[in-house]
Computed example of a mutant assay.
Amino acid sequence: MDGAQQTRKSTGNHAEGVAARYLMSRGVNILERNVFSRGGEIDLIGFDEETLVFFEVRFRGGGSLAGAAESITPTKQKRLIRAASFYLHKHGLWNASSRIDVVAIAPGKSTKYRIQWIKNAIQA
């Protein structure tokens, strides 16, 4: 892994940690992080009350032209839907109430981070 990939990976891991702490402070029970499957990667999986939620975490620095949430392309959306479907199938959870949310993180002005939790952001 070259230096740029390593920096991107460590930034992603840090953002996922920030997102997990934020979500837990709002009552989400985080079950898993960085789940890989044939469908793709899911950053975080947890329960928001009775709903199983697949979280896509996006971080954008202050100089980015597009916001974190806007950076999710249609191709990425399809991968997330496929990965969530694979997870549900693998664990026999087809009847479970589930959704895909986005946690968008950017540097804040008055706080360290500006975090936006978009529930049901990606529809299957």
Rank of each mutant, 00 (worst) to 15 (best):
R38D: 15
Y22G: 03
T11I: 13
G12E: 08
T51S: 11
A66Q: 15
F55G: 06
V53Y: 00
L31T: 01
N13I: 11
T11F: 00
I42D: 07
M24C: 12
I81N: 05
N34H: 10
A84C: 00
N29H: 12
V35S: 09
G12I: 01
K76T: 10
W94T: 10
G3L: 15
N95R: 11
N95L: 14
K78N: 10
G17D: 04
F59E: 00
A68S: 10
S64Y: 09
H14M: 14
T7I: 13
I81H: 02
E32H: 09
G39Q: 02
D2M: 06
G61R: 07
M1E: 09
A15T: 04
V18L: 01
T75I: 12
I42A: 03
H89D: 14
V28D: 00
K78W: 04
A69G: 05
A4C: 02
V53C: 10
A83P: 00
S97I: 08
I72D: 09
N95K: 13
R60L: 03
F47G: 01
I30C: 03
F55Y: 15
G3H: 10
L88M: 12
F55C: 06
T73L: 04
I30R: 04
S25E: 14
S97D: 11
G61H: 03
G62F: 09
I30N: 04
G67Q: 01
L23N: 06
F55K: 09
L93Y: 06
R58A: 03
I42F: 05
I42T: 10
R38G: 15
G92H: 07
E70R: 12
R21T: 14
D2L: 09
A69K: 12
F47Q: 06
E56T: 04
V28I: 11
K76I: 06
S64M: 07
D2F: 04
F54Y: 08
A15K: 08
L80A: 05
R58S: 04
S25P: 02
H89Q: 13
S10R: 15
T73Q: 01
R38K: 14
A83S: 12
L80D: 04
I30L: 08
A19P: 07
T7E: 13
T7K: 15
L52I: 10
F36H: 13
P74R: 07
A69N: 02
T51G: 02
R38Y: 05
S37I: 07
S37V: 05
